[in-house]
């Protein structure tokens, strides 16, 4: 039985984990540079419709969001409502909101402000039309109907 006891121990080279922090830090820095912190909480449920002819706005700081959909919290009812920043609002409040948001941009960029309408696809057009009308009054004329991507159809 001695031969078993004499068995030579195989030495497995240890995997060095010294570079792991560096790798992870690199990832972290990449994400810190490439992303923006989430600023608002979604209080309404928005499932965006899909479209194929999309336009992408790269300058994120120029976008202001208007969310329209059914409240997440059913205590607020089941009718579609509008959310500006962090609170529910009525379309009549848009004018003031646009003015306020516009002053947050620097002067050269104030005319470049985009309003992105994030509307749930089940919503009826009524409230959307009201919002559009108010945006026109506030001269916030650049609008983006936020949508998900789907493939192009047709004869191409």
């Amino acid at each position: 039985m001695a031969q078993f006891g004499k068995k030579k121990k195989r030495v497995v080279g240890e995997v060095s984990t010294a570079s792991l922090p560096d790798i992870v830090f690199m990832l972290l820095f990449f994400f810190m540079v490439a992303t923006v912190l989430r600023t608002e909480e979604e209080k309404v449920r928005v499932i965006r419709p899909d479209a194929s002819e999309l336009y992408r706005i790269e300058k994120k700081h120029l976008i202001r969001y208007v969310n329209i959909g059914v409240p997440q919290d059913t205590r607020y009812g089941t009718d579609p409502v509008m959310q500006l920043n962090d609170a529910f609002a009525s379309p009549a409040e848009i004018y003031e909101w646009v003015e306020k948001e516009r002053t947050k941009l620097n002067e050269a960029e104030q005319s470049k402000m985009w309003v992105s309408l994030k509307v749930d696809k089940e919503t009826k057009m009524g409230i959307v039309t009201d919002v559009k009308q108010e945006l026109r009054k506030a001269s916030a004329l650049k609008v983006l109907y936020s949508a998900g991507r789907r493939d192009r159809t047709g004869n191409e």
């Binding site: 992870v24 990832l27 972290l28 994400f31 810190m32 490439a34 992303t35 923006v36 912190l37 989430r38 965006r48 479209a51 002819e53 999309l54 336009y55 992408r56 706005i57 790269e58 300058k59 994120k60 976008i63 969001y65 992105s116 309408l117 559009k132 009308q133 945006l135 026109r136 009054k137 001269s139 004329l141 650049k142 609008v143 983006l144 109907y145 936020s146 949508a147 991507r149």
Partner: peptide, 24 residues
């Protein structure tokens, strides 16, 4: 830290159909 950042941030801008509304 990485996971915190992943959860609390959104990637790139918004996309959709762009429109210019007529003045009121």
């Amino acid at each position: 830290l990485l996971i915190f950042w992943l959860l609390s941030s959104t990637l790139n801008g918004d996309q959709g159909i762009k429109r210019f509304l007529p003045p009121f």
